[in-house]
Design a protein around this nucleic acid. Structure first.
Lengths: 346, 346
DNA sequence: AGAGAATCGTGACAGAATTCACAGCGTTCG
DNA sequence: CGAACGCTGTGAATTCTGTCACGATTCTCT
């Protein structure tokens, strides 16, 4: 019996060979194909042995003939048709992934419960009401299904599919499926993949990124949604009111903001900042400034009287970012700004 | 050293345990957890042994304590942040998949070359210009990346990421990545999964779907895009012109169509047919009729003088589908219809 | 023509992953 | 109280997967 992994590698070889053929390669040695596929040469030879394809000792494998052999092995005599269940985000992505590809295996129908989707064409595939699924899958003799439904219904849907004659399921749901043993199930568990990746990222060497940059500080975040910031006060004026020094002037004609964001996590900044946000932060680092610049943040307020160094000042000046330094901490600075705006507003 | 598979199962166990806890389960035996996870009981015990968690022989494993143990093992001391590269269909899907999930590992930035995407928020994650990727990944100390870019650029992007300090990559690209050995790569190869599924579907028992329906015939498709079909001719009149018998009358008041589709593949019908399409087919089967009904096809023309059986006639009548039988084959029938319309139009 | 070089095919092997099987231990019940 | 039961933890056996090494084959070069 040929193993699941072998089959999967076969699919990979074929794709590599096809793309190689397009670049004009006519024959290839096992070690070359191995390098492309990132496996060992012995592995390649053994795999090709399984499907009974033989190369010649001097020319290696004939690319076209080998593709044909793999195809003969992998593909059935007729096109195999696939149902996709769950036309949400993932479903769409999978459909687009297979649009116009592979004539030998094709997704021919999608199913979803959402009435807004049923009847529409998604990347060339008709989306139908999920209630029709069982009878249609049966009628169309579909033996393969892609499951892109929420985990909560995955089991139930899978059972229905099996009842309708499906033999293989590819599940993107995070739930394991309890199904008869003769049903082939391939899990694409994105969550597990990500968590594994996280685990091994941590393991694989504690070393710093290769050069560049200086470190984040502790992840203390104090976010203040300044809902009152409809005031027209200029940052220059605000600085004066809270007793902060303006280090670089920012845009000519004054700078005003609609929100204030206080925090030290560079990554949060990506989500929170905008061109209308004043950033208040403990972290006076170049990276902070770079990200701020990236997000078109018009003004930044450092706290605790920490003066930015020359490099940062230069950077801020170049970008017309207003830079101020408050003598107090984040909390007090925020508090005073809040009060100021509140008074202004009332 | 703990293996990749074990880690991935751990992630699975944790999710199962979490959902079990929500339903009020406080302790669980290895064989129960095994059944949920679709692995063997011994496997569960051995895996839990790896992380050093011990249950009690009579109560089994304490669900909460076990979750904590797994978390202690899997999660790092700080939240791990992830970059996503390629905010196309798949990228969107992955982002939505992880939106608001898992506080211990989070996608904090997305990158794409498309200027229409950069600057936008996608499922709560900021999408940025891919040119900023290297420096931002470096500055943010991201060690994990999800690759949802086309296969053609996957290698290049991966190399850049590694240069920026990334340690783990999850790749959805169909291309194997050649990277240093200490980089963890997890492939989510959808194409390979589908082709494997197709292979094993074919293998797993040649048996028919459990009851119901009768088979498709050979996949001969002749598609005729009747671009001229702007004629107002009613199907009844058309039938008369081409010498076809009308078996069931269809909607009261006559039936007209804008397109003609000829073919025998039920699955193609799903994509091609509409409520303005006349279907011409060799295949006089109940399933054909069912699908036609599903797509609101107003009229069907069988060929070669094959009369539909009583069941089909009844079905067509019930659905107000016009059913006609042409004495000739698909080719001739199509030809004559074409000619008729052409003449009509000229 | 014959030696040499390179590669394929494959039996034998090594290592990983999984399952088996049983000792050890608490619980329950007579 | 003691035997019987059922579960865990783990050494041993088994199965699966991939690698090694070497004979066989074909071409090239002298």
């Amino acid at each position: 019996m040929v193993s699941r992994k072998t089959v999967s590698r076969m699919s990979r070889y074929r794709r590599l060979l096809q793309s190689l053929r397009e670049t004009g390669v006519e024959s290839i040695y096992s070690h070359q194909l191995a390098r492309h596929a990132v496996v060992s040469a012995a592995q390649v030879r053994r795999d090709l042995m399984v499907i009974g394809y033989s190369g010649s000792p001097n020319k290696g494998y004939d690319v076209t003939a080998c593709i044909d052999s793999i195809s003969h092995f992998l593909d059935g005599p007729v096109r195999q048709e696939v149902a996709l269940v769950g036309a949400g985000n993932l479903g769409h992505a999978v459909l687009s992934h297979f649009a116009d590809k592979s004539p030998t295996v094709a997704i021919v129908a999608a199913f979803d419960v959402d009435p807004a989707l049923t009847g529409t064409l998604i990347h060339g595939v008709r989306c139908l009401d999920a209630r029709l699924m069982e009878s249609l899958v049966r009628d169309l003799r579909l033996q393969i299904a892609v499951l892109t439904v929420p985990g909560t219904v995955a089991q139930e849907v899978a059972e229905t599919l099996v009842r309708a004659g499906v033999k293989s399921i590819i599940s993107f749901a995070p739930t394991p499926l309890a199904l008869p043993n003769d049903i082939f199930v391939e899990y694409m568990d994105i969550t597990a993949a990500l968590e594994s990746a996280a685990f091994f990222a941590r393991l694989g060497g504690r070393d710093e990124p290769p050069a560049n940059g200086d470190g984040d500080i502790e992840p203390i975040v104090r976010k203040l949604e300044s809902l009152l910031a409809r005031s027209n006060m200029k940052l220059e004026e605000l600085a004066a009111r809270i007793g902060a020094d303006v280090v670089t002037p920012g845009k000519a004609g004054g700078t005003s903001v609609a929100r204030i964001y206080a925090g030290d996590r560079v990554s949060d900044l990506l989500n929170e900042a905008s061109d209308k946000t004043l950033l208040v932060s403990n972290l006076a680092s170049v990276q902070m400034l770079r990200v701020a610049e990236l997000m078109d943040v018009p003004g930044i307020c450092f706290v605790n009287g920490i003066r930015p160094d020359e490099e940062m000042v230069q950077l801020a000046r170049d970008n017309d970012t207003l830079l101020m330094v408050s003598p107090q901490g984040v909390f007090e600075t925020c508090g005073r700004i809040y009060q100021t705006l509140d008074g202004e507003h009332a």
